[in-house]
């Protein structure tokens, strides 16, 4: 079966995000005051798996082994 997964990799709560801080500043220059700005990476993947559970396991493996760095990242997996 073909599965589509959307994986979001984001910094753990409380982690410094210098890029987001810079973007928040740039928004301020344009007149937009934000209390906070966070950014995340989204991976959209298509792959074959035997079952929904198997597809989730595969996506988990991808996050653990490459896509996320466990020291700084949290991730969400959504099967579409």
């Amino acid at each position: 079966m073909l599965f589509r997964a959307e994986i979001t990799i984001k910094l753990k709560n409380g982690m410094l995000d210098p890029e987001a801080a810079t973007i928040k500043n740039a928004l301020k220059h344009l007149g937009y005051e934000c209390r906070s700005v966070k950014q995340a990476a989204i991976f959209k993947l298509e792959f074959e798996a035997d079952s929904r559970q198997n597809a989730t396991d595969v996506a988990e493996g991808m996050c653990r082994r490459l896509l996320a760095n466990p020291i700084i990242h949290d991730y969400d997996i959504e099967l579409v």
Binding site: P18, E19, N69
Partner: peptide
């Protein structure tokens, strides 16, 4: 660090 051969990680500088 990405290989987990040493602890911790090196990421984007405080001023990026």
């Amino acid at each position: 660090s990405e290989s987990h051969l040493v602890p911790g990680t090196f990421t984007l500088n405080q001023y990026p």
